[in-house]
Every structure is written in structure tokens, then in C-alpha cells.
């Protein structure tokens, strides 16, 4: 065994934080949409990732099944990478969990207020039952904190290591 100098924290390359954000976005998207699938399975919400991403604009036997849900989860995982990168670009300097909460709330507003009415097969927001609204909102809040808190923490960590 050769004697090694202890390797001190290397100065992180700018690409490192991007890769971290990509993994955060991807796994965050997958995880919280899986929770969404679970809640939808137990009818806590009528809107599931599958019904949103797939069957809102496609027709067919398979669009209600598990295959559709899993494809939707993957699609959301990929979409989530973009959202996380957006957060990294714009909001990474905000500390704490409050920015994440507001981000999640805003995201929910955009998805359910602006995108939902464009989908031909979906009920409008006002016709959704209160359980659905609360459940989806909570998921978006958790997702927002997951993305926001992680990115701001990584950013802060990096700032401190630079010193």
C-alpha cells in the first residue's frame, strides 16, 4: 500500500453541481410521481401521473393501465430534470425551505391552472374534488421543497468549501 496524502476536498468543477442537480431532478420527479401513483391507486386523487401525461391527450385501452403510469413516471422524471435546472439557474441563492414551498405551490398553480385546461380529457380545476386538490397540492409542495432545498443546500455547501 503506498502512502497517500489525505485528499482534501477538491475544488468542485462547475459540471459537478449540474450533474448533482440532474440527479436530484430525475429522482425527485420519479419519487414523487410514484407517490402520486400510489395515492391515485387508493383514490386519494383522481389525477394520477398517468391520467395527466398520457390519457389526457391520448385514447386507447392501455392508457389507463400500469404501463401508462410507469411511462408517465419516467416522462415526469425527465421533465423534472429541466425544472431542477431551471431552479438552479434562477433560485439557487434562496436559503431555507420556504422558497421550495413557494416554488412547489407555483408549479402546482401553473400545472393545474394553465396546463390542465388545455387537456381535452381532463376535468377543469373547479370540478375536481377537494381531496384531489389537497393531495396533489401537498405532493407539489413536497416536490418543490425536495428540489429547492437540495439545490440551495448544495449551492451553499459549495460556497463554503470555496472559502
Amino acid at each position: 500500500m503506498e502512502l497517500k496524502q489525505p485528499i482534501h476536498l477538491k475544488k468542485e468543477k462547475p459540471s459537478a453541481i449540474i450533474w448533482k442537480t440532474v440527479s436530484t431532478g430525475f429522482f425527485g420527479g420519479i419519487l414523487w410521481s410514484l407517490v402520486g401513483v400510489f395515492f391515485a391507486f387508493f383514490n386519494f386523487t383522481v389525477v394520477s401521473p398517468g391520467s395527466f401525461v398520457i390519457s389526457s391527450w391520448l385514447h386507447g385501452e392501455w392508457t389507463d393501465g400500469w404501463l401508462a403510469e410507469m411511462i408517465a413516471v419516467l416522462v415526469l422524471g425527465v421533465l423534472s430534470i429541466l425544472i431542477a435546472l431551471l431552479y438552479l439557474l434562477v433560485l439557487k441563492k434562496l436559503q431555507g425551505i420556504l422558497p421550495g414551498l413557494l416554488f412547489g405551490f407555483g408549479l402546482w398553480g401553473i400545472v393545474f391552472g394553465l396546463i390542465l385546461p388545455l387537456c381535452p380529457n381532463m376535468k377543469p380545476l373547479l370540478e375536481l374534488d377537494s381531496d384531489t386538490i389537497v393531495t396533489t397540492l401537498c405532493l407539489y409542495l413536497l416536490y418543490g421543497v425536495f428540489i429547492g432545498f437540495t439545490i440551495s443546500y448544495d449551492h451553499l455547501d459549495r460556497q463554503q468549501n470555496k472559502k
Binding site: F27, L141, L142, T150
Partner: peptide, 26 residues
């Protein structure tokens, strides 16, 4: 939601309590 957010908000001696889940570290 409150349970998970409370765990996330907690910190022990400046260490985020719910690390590595939130903040996430793969």
C-alpha cells in the same frame, strides 16, 4: 406533508436532519 417538512426543517448542530433525503444526495 407536515411530518416530512418538519423533519426537513430540523437541523442538529447546523446539520440538516433529513439529509441525504432532503436535501437529496444520491
Amino acid at each position: 406533508t407536515i411530518y416530512l417538512l418538519a423533519l426537513t426543517k430540523t437541523s442538529s448542530l447546523n446539520t440538516p436532519y433529513f439529509w441525504p433525503f432532503m436535501p437529496f444526495n444520491f
